[in-house]
Design a protein around this nucleic acid. Structure first.
Length: 878
RNA sequence: GGGUGUGUAGCUCAGUGGUAUGAGCACUACGUUGACAUCGUAGGGGUCGCUGGUUCGAUCCCAGCCACACCCA
């Protein structure tokens, strides 16, 4: 027996536990159909589930469950990411509570602590994914720092190195002074701020009273200046080229050079060149062979190359200005809108810093990654995102992969006594190579840097399948079928996966990439912890059930658009689940259950034929839309069918049958109900796996679990069966509408006459009289050939006229008003038809079918108009 | 500055070269027996951002403009 109320908490967790314990998420490797695989975008091991995950993983689970029901070999590969900076930050924060820094522990001990933390507190998100219903194969769960994945990292690193696609270089990189590491361009966010532009002047060497005027936003970097640049086209300043300027405060001589970087139109036309601390100046420095002077410590305080060692940049800036003022060289300070780079994790200003770092030759790797998309080997859905992808890939810069952190994959790089580099997968191999090179045993020193987290994420599509070992899963599931991810991760992850996979596997990592939007708050603002507008999916699930949240995500997911959170809507989908629950209870109460061997093609009652045809139609819509990744259309098709057809009409229409005497009809109807409810449970299961399973388990003894039930193959839809009932529904709606407009008490049982009906309508009326009477609250419904009398309310219905005798209770004023309104409407439509059909070019050029349709509408409207006018005539005198 | 996207009912959004049967929520009226008030029935509400163009016909295609959002510099 089903409980009276739908209460998802009673069964959601229980059902999930059963699936997992029974191995229902494991791929059936014997399946004879195609393989379908998704690798999960690995959440950070430190992460907790947010609405973005809820959307992302719901969409994946829908696809996975759908394909599993299609009978394919299905793998949803789960796992988590070690998330270098994020995780190190969390653990360091914990240590800080006890007043300990990672340096107190030392590298090995610290990493041990991180692992311990990971075992104890990491992966909360995987439990939360279970609560959401995600049917990942948890027996295959991977972590980016697992031994297997680490081996993949080392192997691909060595390959890239030996192919010359990884190299070490001294370059300007983005330096995060909080974590004291280099970061990639992608981890830098540019923030617009109103800063200051400082105008001051440098004296010209040997020409007292002569100056060159400088404008800069960062005066404190002047100690790293090694030139001043002026454009050779700058008429006012070009005479200074070749002379020297004197750096004030430190009294250093620097050349004034000609370089196009100094735009005569901007600032003062002269630019101070600080090659070690500005990306543009670095390029200028290279062109002119200028010395590079580093003026910063790793923590972004000034170093001993400046007069202010140990001072932070802000304070140093003030000091510099004071000194310049003392020297009478400061001219003015203006507000200046500018863009300042910040670390996306640390939120501190990123300093361009000259350091030794490791780079991946992304421009070379990008070539194949671009080609694969151009050739359609990997397709973006929606397609428009390929533009974003191409745009970025074609302008890609070398990727800085070294991080001066402790938590991460240590690079497989060893240095000999003379700093010669040995890059091998293991220490033994490196040692052997070194010993061979030097001809005797040497001590090797391992590189201390670790790799950017995204390096290992980039291998995720094949490393999780067991690469580099040959194995059944890799053979079966690579390339994976589709990657589902948000657009903000295209550069970080999609692009890197493409590059790494094309390089190593020579094949795309996934055949399709479905890109979805962000989940925003109710007002459409981006959710963020700092704004305090986040909604916790776990709380939503607690309140409305996982099915309601999932259905919300699916129903709102239209390709490429962001989703605004809406609690009302989630409540609405909870109500939808309640509706289905109660429909199932209705079936239970009336002994409606699936019958073994029932042939739905053999039913005879039109109502049963109709709902079966509708169910097949809905199935077809869900199938087609899921195949096209049209999640909202798929979800809405089930929703409309369940609520709008099955509950609103079918259940109401079969009541007279179920409460009647005809046992044959009853039996057929009960079996049909059972069949249709089963069909609903099947096509709704990918969206709402919990309630559908609970109902499946409670409505019959089953040979197969719903999660493995077969998705229906394409079927013939008996569209003729739909017409009878569509006629009936229209008639009932017309009567209800008339009743409502005439303010007839809901409880009043009336007689319905149909006058002027053709043979088909007459037959319909007779066949469905009991249904019509039941749903339209009528005493009887019959064909009428008599005169229309003054006590009848009347309405137009197709070729006939509806009459409701009201024994003197018709309000003629209201009736006249209603009829006049209808007449007005008809006239408006007729005007339109006349205009169109009177236009010769329309009649000549529009397709014949369109013209015919227009004529049909015109004829129908004319007939209706005549009926309404007659009716008005009749009651004119009352 | 470059790029992408969005402007449709009070709100949040679907959708389409042929009268917008638009959806959910909100709103109004009425609620009747035995699935469901987490409900039912009926109803009101829109010059589909603005201006041109293509077309027999444009909310839909094209161009320009206005507004907003996002990405990259």
């Amino acid at each position: 027996m089903l409980e009276k109320n739908y209460n998802p908490k009673d069964f959601e967790e229980k059902i999930y536990a059963d699936w997992e314990a029974s191995g229902d998420f494991k791929s059936d490797m014997r399946a004879d159909k195609d393989a379908f695989a998704i690798v999960i975008p690995p959440p950070n091991v430190t992460g907790v589930l947010h609405m973005g995950h809820a959307l992302n993983d719901t969409l994946q689970d829908i696809l996975v469950r759908y394909n599993r029901m299609l009978g394919k070999k299905v793998l949803w590969q789960p796992g988590t990411d070690h998330a270098g900076i994020a995780t190190q930050m969390v653990v360091e924060r914990n240590l800080a509570k006890d007043g300990i820094t990672r340096h107190d522990l030392g590298r090995d001990k610290f990493i041990e602590t991180v692992w311990k933390w990971k075992e104890q507190s990491g992966g909360i998100i995987c439990k939360q994914l279970r609560r959401l219903g995600a049917s990942c194969d948890w027996s295959r769960e991977r972590f980016t720092m697992d031994e297997g994945l680490s081996r993949a990292v080392r192997k691909i690193f060595v390959n890239l190195y030996k192919d010359g696609l990884i190299y070490k270089a001294k370059k300007l990189v983005n330096w995060d002074s909080k974590f004291m590491t280099a970061v990639s361009d992608l981890e830098v966010v540019q923030k617009e701020t109103v800063g200051k532009m400082y105008y001051y002047k440098y004296p010209i060497e040997g020409e007292p009273g002569e100056f060159i005027h400088i404008a800069t936003t960062r005066p404190e970097t002047m100690f790293g200046d090694t030139a001043v640049a002026v454009s050779k086209d700058n008429e006012k300043l070009k005479h200074l080229i070749g002379k020297n300027a004197v750096l004030p405060i430190v009294d250093k001589i620097i050349p004034i050079i000609a370089d196009e970087h100094a735009d005569p139109e901007k600032g003062t036309g002269a630019v101070k060149i600080t090659p070690a601390h500005d990306f543009n100046d670095f390029e200028v420095g290279k062109r002119h062979n200028l010395p590079l002077i580093n003026i910063l410590n790793p923590d972004a305080t000034l170093n001993e190359n400046t007069p202010f060692p140990g001072m932070d940049t802000q304070t140093a800036r003030q000091k510099t200005i004071e000194k310049l003022e003392e020297l009478g060289l400061m001219e003015r300070i203006e507000d200046h809108p500018m863009v300042i780079p910040y670390g996306d994790r640390s939120n501190v200003v990123i300093e361009p810093m000259l350091t030794d770092q490791w780079f991946v030759d992304a421009p070379t790797l990008a070539k194949e990654a671009i080609r694969a998309v151009e050739d359609g080997e990997m397709q973006f859905v929606p397609k428009s995102y390929e533009k974003t992808y191409f745009e970025w890939m074609r302008n890609i810069q070398p990727w800085c992969i070294s991080r001066q952190l402790w938590w991460g994959h240590r690079m497989p790089i060893w240095y000999g006594p003379d700093d010669k580099i040995f890059c091998e997968e293991t220490e033994e191999e490196a040692q052997a190579a070194a010993d061979k090179h030097y001809g005797h045993h040497v001590e090797l020193r391992r590189e201390t840097d670790v790799l950017d987290t995204w390096f290992s994420s980039g291998l995720w599509a094949f490393s999780t399948l067991g690469w580099p070992d040959k194995n059944e899963y890799l053979d079966t599931f690579y390339p994976t079928s589709v990657l589902v991810t948000a657009f903000d991760i295209i550069f970080f992850w999609v692009a890197r996966m493409m590059m790494m996979s094309m390089y190593m596997m020579k094949r795309v990592p996934f055949r399709k990439c479905y890109i979805h939007g962000l989940v925003r708050d109710e007002q459409g603002r981006k959710m963020s912890k700092s704004k305090g507008n986040t909604v916790d999916p776990m709380e939503t699930i607690e309140k409305y059930g996982a099915d309601a949240l999932r259905f919300f995500m699916a129903a709102m997911e239209t390709q490429g658009r962001d989703i605004n959170m809406s609690e009302a809507r989630i409540a609405g989908y909870r109500n939808f689940a309640t509706k289905l629950w109660n429909a199932a209870r209705f079936g239970e109460m009336n002994n409606c259950a699936p019958v073994k061997g029932f042939d739905e093609k053999g039913v005879s009652h039109p109502v049963n034929k109709w709902i079966i045809a509708k169910a097949k139609e809905a199935t077809e819509q869900v199938t087609a839309n899921l195949n096209a990744f049209r999640f909202s259309d798929a979800a809405n098709a089930v929703y409309q069918f369940v609520w709008g057809a099955f509950c609103d009409w079918y259940i109401e229409m079969i009541k007279p049958i179920l409460y009647g005497e005809d046992e044959t009809q009853k039996a057929e109807t009960r079996a049909t109900f059972g069949w249709v409810l089963d069909r609903i449970l099947i096509i709704l299961h990918p969206f709402m796996p919990f309630i559908t399973t609970e109902l499946w388990n409670n409505t019959a003894d089953r040979d197969v679990k719903l999660i493995h039930a077969a998705w229906p193959q394409s079927e013939n839809i008996d569209s003729a069966a739909m017409n009878d009932i569509d006629w009936t529904i229209d008639l009932i709606s017309a009567v209800r509408s008339l009743r409502s407009e005439m303010n007839i008490p809901a409880g009043a049982r009336l007689t319905l006459y149909l006058k002027g009906a053709d043979a088909a309508s007459a037959e319909h009326l007779q066949s469905f009289a009991s249904i019509i009477c039941s749903l339209a609250r009528l005493e009887k419904a019959e064909i009428y050939t008599g005169e229309i009398t003054s006590d009848m309310a009347q309405g137009v219905f197709r070729e006939a006229v509806l009459l409701l005798p009201l024994k003197g209770v018709v309000d003629f004023a209201a009736e006249r008003e209603r009829l006049n309104k209808e007449l007005e409407n008809l006239n408006k439509n007729l005007e339109g038809y006349a205009r169109k059909l009177g236009n010769p070019s329309f009649v000549e050029r529009a397709p014949a079918a369109v013209v015919e349709e227009e004529k049909r509408r015109q004829t129908e409207a004319l007939e209706n108009k005549a009926k309404v006018e007659e009716a008005l005539q009749r009651i004119a005198n009352f």
